[in-house]
Design a protein around this nucleic acid. Sequence first.
RNA 1: GCCCGUGUGGCGGAAUGGUAGACGCUACAGACUUAAAAUCUGUUGUCCUUUCGGGCGUGGGGGUUCGAGUCCCUCCACGGGCACCA
Length: 860
Amino acid sequence: MSLDISEITPYNFSVVEKKWQKFWREKKSFKTCIDASKPKCFVLEMFMYPSGKVHIGHVRNYTIGDIIARYKLANGFAVLHPVGWDAFGLPAENAALKNGRHPKEWTYQNIQTMKKQIESLGFSYDWEREFATCDEKYYAYQQKIFLELYKKGLIYRKKSEVNWDPIDQCVLANEQVIDGKGWRSGAIVEKKMLSQWFLKITDFADELLSEINHLDGWPEKVRTMQKNWIGKSEGCLITFKSSIGEYIEVFSTRPDTIFGATFLAISPGHPLAQKLSKTNSTIKSFLESIKIGSTSTEQIEKQEKIGIDTGITVDHPFLNKKLPVFIANFVLMDYGTGAIFSTPAHDERDYEFATKYNLPIIQVVKSNDNFPEKLPYSGDGILENSEFLNGLSVTEAKNKSIDKLCEMGIGQRKVFFKLRDWGISRQRYWGCPIPIIHCEKCGIVPLHENNLPILLPEDVSFDKTGNPLDHHPTWKHVNCPICNSEALRETDTLDTFVDSSWYFLRFCANNPENIELLDSKSIKQWMPVDQYIGGVEHAILHLLYARFFTKALAECGFTNVREPFKNLFTQGMVCNNTYKSKNGDWLFPSQVRKTEDGTYELIDTGEKVTVGRSEKMSKSKKNVVDPDEIISTYGTDALRLFVVSDTPPERDFPWSDEGLEGSWRFINRLWRLFVFAQANGVCSEKCKDVIDYENLSDNIQQLYKIYHVSIKNITLALEDRAMNKVVAYIRELVNCIYMNLENIQNNSSVFSVIIRDLIKMLAPISPHISEEVWNILGFNGLVSENPWPKYDEKYTIVETINLPIQVNGKLRGTIDICIDEKEENIFEKALALQTVQNAIANRVIRKKVFVKGKIINFVV
RNA sequence: GCCCGUGUGGCGGAAUGGUAGACGCUACAGACUUAAAAUCUGUUGUCCUUUCGGGCGUGGGGGUUCGAGUCCCUCCACGGGCACCA
């Protein structure tokens, strides 16, 4: 039977894709398999904020996750691959303000829309475990967790200076302030004193830091970022006695340089500075002058170093010498003790300050090489001018100086962290209520577990600024559970990052109806997450909080894991070209066309258009594409294939309409191949795994070997998560089959085996077409339920190769040889090449290099 | 300033120290077609050469090696993170 492959009816993706999505949904094909005899694999993509519509970035993120989940399933793992919604948060309230819709309604409506979109992408989720963090059941349990953490002393309330976002009217955590601006609103953050709830993340600073070293399944970049954020520094607290009798405590990581100290500097916020300003008008006006213009963090950083001599001196601990005390603007109050001793010779900031105020600079560390150092010098070296420290290395001197200071009773070893406790209060409605009562008599009263949940009132109004919970007429008025007198509910809600700090534990619950949401047996079965996938923008915020929360919950006995994510994969952003009109407005790519001379113009008017660089797709830059539109034009399979083609998944992905069309063409090329195969007798019954290899024709033998090599390459690439290579190898195999169509169509058993495994390997990426042809060709069950193909190493061994021949390291030709051919024969053949002879040009061969199966090189 | 990361055709990117450019996009050509589209088959780093073949090529410079995109030193460019953290 023969069939012209070009005549085959085009693939009707929209019917096929809908058909299988319906089938998977109705048959619950991807319900989690709770089989203890199988190795488990928890595949999780960072869950979605229901902002309204799915964008291409989501598609890429979830496609990568889905490929891994489906691949693991085919490899015999019990896979947990859940889906959910990070549903509390400000945008819901902003939408409420803007168009008068209730945040709850807005959120659940968005979830519904986006769920439909997600389903149209054919992901292998266990939908039975789906939940949203704004579901009453979820946040009720979160309140229980809050109370447990409170009991454990991991939550406390403190009045402190906080980051206040004037647009969102809300407090932000340090992690949520980026370049002095709110991470969401972009408003310049102000400082404000407020009573706030804090989580004691600093209790875990050491563990959070040291465990990073064991997270070898994480990108190095993210590990470094977390280390820097935690910012551990080891050093010494030193007490100096001042001329007015008071003691000043400073922190230093370089106590070895104490003999080079020439002054002390204290922060303008230091208690001593504050005290002096009350009696000394010069100091007072100095402190006032530096306050001006110091509202934003950015400005502070660029400020010139200035200070004022207090007239006070302190005694040097080892020398009979007085050091002046300055108030200096570059000393921060909220790090260390707010006071430092300054060694200008070995610290850049001290050097700058000392130069400006003509303070002495004494070098006490000499670098190991003999070049004179350019000061300030902060590198390693040998101590000098330092009495008992002379001749020691920096490390030795650090220890010895600290020991000595301790002995004298004025020193103390000390570790400081940059990491601050996590402020979790938010003055907003759409979040998890904090289960606390404020009573005038009894103070802070945590609710009893039996009084949970505290549900959000639905009848709220957003017409006043500030927190709607606070203006609600009745909600906050309660009686104190202890003394029964009138009391007030806490009206702050929890930061949404709390919601996302334990959702993965909730996904573990094998019985989601169970009130005991943190079921330790289920958690033990599934945690940690074997593969977590998400954007690198969460490197610090979410990933650090989630690590901390997991540890805190373990501490409270909820779980047995201390690290939530074993392997982390951070995918790149989807980027697209940007276009701007003459007057600087962004333009949609659809408004622009390329002209013959390679420039771009507006389709409507022909006006010239500036092409910007490729940037992350965003609505504001108008360089977005709509997944729904693409799915209806090219199909989900083509889209899924495209977003993992060409570019390694960890890198930014350049969108191109041509590339997408190429993927669509490939899906059709596959379809034609499958239909052709069916017409030529390919079917389930013809698949025999024992092939009479020796009696195959040369062409078929070659194809059969390529097929084994393909399985090997594709499998290894998938293990490496190099989806772009997976696609390349699949295309290579398909190209080879196409080239051998005439030969292979007469051998339906080999053809069947190759087609069967091609479908299996395609299935994780483009599952719909795979499922369809699997069904058409009569294979058993679903392709996703079938095991991953295996390759036989013996067919991947190369027997004959095209051996490159070099002369002096330059390629001069190749010879076809059998891999086991004798060395002397190979040399003979190589030397017989005219090109090799020309290159040797009668010179003497000084050396012959032969690497079996690799190369020959003649050195002349 | 400090710490990471990345530099390969017109573009996205392949390449255990061993034939640089797999696979794709773009472009061009041929076949099919009345024609176009689609499809199938080629070509596509660059320069010299009718051919055979040869020169130059992985950001720049140096080094190790029979042999370097890959290893070492150094410089440059771009991207990201942190940034008076004592």
